[in-house]
Amino acid sequence: MHTSIVKILGAKAVDFKPTDGSGRHYDHVQLFCQIPMDLSQGNAIGNGCETFNWQDSANIALLRKFKQSDFPLEAKITFDMVTSGKGVKYVVCDVELPQPTKVP
């Protein structure tokens, strides 16, 4: 497992079962995170946005404790890497969020 501090720019809950008879169930929160660009080739600068899936769409409730103005927010993400044999995918195992700001 790997741990990284990232800026979460936003998030979206996904809970979807396609009607194609596949039996699939997509149930996660998409975390849109700011990630530094690969500077090693000399043709990029700045940051990009990568999407990580945090299992269980109910996790969006943890992010709703924050106000719109709290974003982007820094969080510690623990993830694992898996492969299909063709490519690598990151699976978020844990997200440590900061304490939300108190609403007066």
Results as ranks from 00 to 15, higher is better:
59 N>C: 01
48 G>V: 10
98 P>E: 03
73 L>D: 01
56 D>A: 03
77 I>W: 01
40 S>N: 13
100 P>N: 07
79 F>L: 12
91 V>Q: 13
30 Q>E: 14
3 T>K: 15
15 D>F: 15
37 M>F: 11
74 E>T: 10
51 T>R: 00
23 G>P: 09
35 I>G: 00
87 G>H: 14
2 H>R: 05
24 R>I: 05
6 V>R: 08
96 E>C: 06
40 S>I: 05
52 F>T: 00
2 H>A: 11
12 K>A: 00
29 V>Q: 01
8 I>H: 03
78 T>S: 13
40 S>A: 07
37 M>C: 13
30 Q>L: 02
47 N>M: 09
75 A>L: 01
17 K>G: 00
45 I>F: 14
76 K>I: 04
102 K>G: 12
74 E>N: 12
25 H>A: 07
73 L>T: 04
54 W>L: 10
10 G>I: 03
21 G>R: 13
91 V>E: 13
7 K>T: 00
65 K>S: 10
101 T>N: 15
60 I>L: 03
30 Q>T: 01
47 N>Q: 10
88 V>G: 06
103 V>C: 07
32 F>Y: 06
62 L>R: 04
43 N>Y: 12
8 I>Y: 08
1 M>S: 15
77 I>K: 01
70 D>F: 10
35 I>P: 04
46 G>S: 09
79 F>Q: 01
99 Q>H: 06
71 F>Y: 15
4 S>L: 11
32 F>I: 02
15 D>T: 04
8 I>A: 04
14 V>R: 03
23 G>R: 08
52 F>M: 09
38 D>G: 02
56 D>L: 03
7 K>N: 11
50 E>I: 11
17 K>M: 08
42 G>Q: 09
16 F>S: 03
57 S>R: 11
85 G>N: 12
15 D>E: 14
44 A>N: 15
25 H>Y: 10
93 C>W: 03
11 A>L: 06
29 V>P: 01
83 T>M: 08
46 G>H: 10
76 K>C: 02
78 T>D: 11
92 V>Q: 06
24 R>A: 14
39 L>S: 12
80 D>W: 05
89 K>W: 06
33 C>H: 00
20 D>T: 03
46 G>L: 12
30 Q>H: 06
6 V>G: 00
7 K>V: 01
100 P>I: 01
70 D>V: 08
51 T>L: 00
22 S>E: 12
2 H>I: 03
50 E>H: 12
43 N>G: 02
6 V>W: 08
21 G>F: 10
104 P>N: 15
53 N>D: 06
101 T>I: 13
64 R>F: 10
98 P>R: 12
17 K>A: 05
23 G>F: 10
4 S>E: 14
33 C>T: 06
94 D>T: 08
42 G>L: 11
67 K>D: 15
88 V>H: 08
57 S>Y: 10
17 K>S: 11
93 C>G: 06
88 V>Y: 13
57 S>C: 15
104 P>G: 15
11 A>Q: 03
78 T>P: 02
32 F>M: 04
